[in-house]
Design a protein around this nucleic acid. Structure first.
Lengths: 169, 169
DNA sequence: GTTCAACTAGACCAAAAAGGTCCAATTTGG
DNA sequence: CCAAATTGGACCTTTTTGGTCTAGTTGAAC
C-alpha cells in the first residue's frame, strides 16, 4: 500500500511547474535537476503526465514541458490517479461484481471508508497551494530572481517569447 | 496503493475466527472453505499470522488455528500491519532520513495526513465488531448449529499449553 | 530545406513483490 | 512406536517496479 516512485516524481514535477510564472516551459533536463530524478526515468514520468493531459509538451528547439491545467484546481489526487489509475485500496472495491462476498462482507465497508478518507485528503491538496508553501519555505529552490528562469532555453539572440504557447490542435 | 491478496485473506480469517466461541480451533481446510481461499495459499497467510502472534497454531491430529488475541482489541489496522508491516503511503514517510527533501517538501505533510487518515479508519475497526456484523448479515456463513464447531480442536487436558515454540537460535 | 535541439516511443533489464504449489517436518492418537 | 493428520517452510512462476538506453520524430531557426 504505497505510491510508486514514479508517482512521487510526478508530484514533484507538478509542484515545481506550479511554482513558476504561468505558462513557463521547462526542459526535461531542468526538471530533472529540480526534482532530483534521473533524466531517463523522468522522461517516462513526463510522458505519462502528458498522456493524462496534466502537462503539455513542445518538441524541437526551445521546447519543453508546460502545465496544461490550472494549478489551483488540480489536486494531489488527480496526479496520483493520472499515474496509477483510480485508487483502489482493495481489489473488492472495483466497480463491477469483483467479489461475491461484497454483499455481506463486513470488511468491505471499512475498506471503502478508508479509501474515501485518503481520497479526501489528497483531493483537498491543490497543487497551487503546495507550490506556494514550497516557495515560502525555500524560495531559492523554486525562484531565482537573480536571473530569469527561462533564459536557459534561449539561443544567443535571447528573446524570451517562449512563455506563451498557442497550441491549437 | 492496494493491500495484497494475502492481507485480504488474513482479514477474512481473523473475522471468521472472531465470530466463533472463544478458543475455538479450526483446521486449515475448514478455514479454507470459510474464506474461499485455496488451502495451499492460505497456509502461507496463516503462517504469517502465527508469526505476528495474532493466532496460535497446533500441529498434529486434532490441531488447527486459534485466535491468540482479544477480538475486541485487535483492529483491521493490526491485521494489515501484521501482514505488510507498518503502513507507509510513500517512501519518504520512513522513520530515518529517507528523503532529503523531507524538511521542505510541501507534499510530505499531505502524504502524512493521508496515511494518518487511513490508519485511523482501519484502527477504529475492531475485528469483533466486524464479526458481529457478519453474524447479523449472514449467520449461516459463520455459525453451524447442527454440529458443534469446536469439536475438532479441544484437547482433553484442555489447557493452553499448546503454544509450544521451539525457537532455539 | 537543412540542421539540430528537444521530446517520443519503445525495447530491454534486474530486482522485488505477489500469487501460488508442493514436499518435508512435526505432533498426536492409538 | 508407528502412522495419519497437520502445519511449516522451501520453491516456483508471473507481474510489477524502477531504471537505462537507443533509435526515431518533430519543429523552430537559420
Amino acid at each position: 500500500m504505497q505510491i510508486t516512485r514514479a508517482t512521487d516524481y510526478a508530484v514533484r514535477v507538478m509542484i515545481h511547474l506550479a511554482g513558476l510564472p504561468t505558462g513557463t516551459s521547462l526542459r526535461q533536463s531542468e526538471l530533472s535537476k529540480a526534482t532530483d530524478v534521473s533524466g531517463h526515468f523522468l522522461s517516462k514520468v513526463l510522458q505519462q503526465l502528458v498522456r493524462s493531459r496534466l502537462i503539455r509538451s513542445q518538441r524541437g528547439t526551445g521546447g519543453g514541458y508546460t502545465l496544461a491545467v490550472s494549478a489551483t484546481t488540480v489536486s494531489l489526487l488527480d496526479v496520483v490517479e493520472a499515474m496509477e489509475g483510480p485508487i483502489r485500496l482493495n481489489q473488492c472495491l472495483e466497480e463491477g461484481p469483483s467479489c461475491d462476498r461484497k454483499s455481506w462482507c463486513p470488511a468491505h465497508q471499512v475498506w471503502a471508508e478508508a479509501q474515501l478518507a485518503v481520497a479526501q485528503v489528497l483531493g483537498g491538496a491543490a497543487i497551487a497551494k503546495l507550490a506556494a508553501q514550497a516557495g515560502t519555505v525555500s524560495p531559492a529552490q523554486y525562484r531565482r530572481h537573480d536571473e530569469p528562469i527561462w533564459i536557459s532555453g534561449i539561443p544567443r539572440k535571447g528573446r524570451g517569447k517562449r512563455i506563451h504557447r498557442s497550441h491549437s490542435p
